[in-house]
Amino acid sequence: MQAIADKQGVKRYLVDVTVNGDDYSVVVKANTLLVNLLRDEIDLTGTKKGCELGDCGSCTVLLDGKPVDACLVLALEADGCDVITIEGVAQHGELDKLQRSFADNAAIQCGYCTPGMILSAKALLTRNPKPTEPEVRAAISGNLCRCTGYVNIVKAVMAAASGEVTA
């Protein structure tokens, strides 16, 4: 990869990444994490930092369709990739059925885990439109929530999958 060194000799690299359908070219240091690229460079702060070690899933984004912790992906590793963040879930101002279901089922409290939860659930329903409850729990088990005991989150995902909620 082409790089330019700064005064201290630290190199900068160009990352081309598609976020929520829009193309961005950003110059980053190698140590820039995807979560920082999104939050600091593109100002998509819906992707949250909770632990920065892959324990909590608050920074979950879809990288080429798969949920990953953006705190454990180098921005450079996302070069050429397609990223969906929580800001890219609603389309033309219309909430996704999962978003609506989270609101309708009291699945949101502090809201800090919500973006990551919705993206993990979104990836599940894309892959498996009619999951069982254990499948839902497994799919969100990398997303910690301190408020809800997961009860209403599981309910919301099941309701979205069963078509009880329409977008």
Partner: peptide
Amino acid sequence: PKIDAREKVTGQARY
């Protein structure tokens, strides 16, 4: 539904 639900499900809520 929570008064802040939409902001929280869309990532608009600023912490």
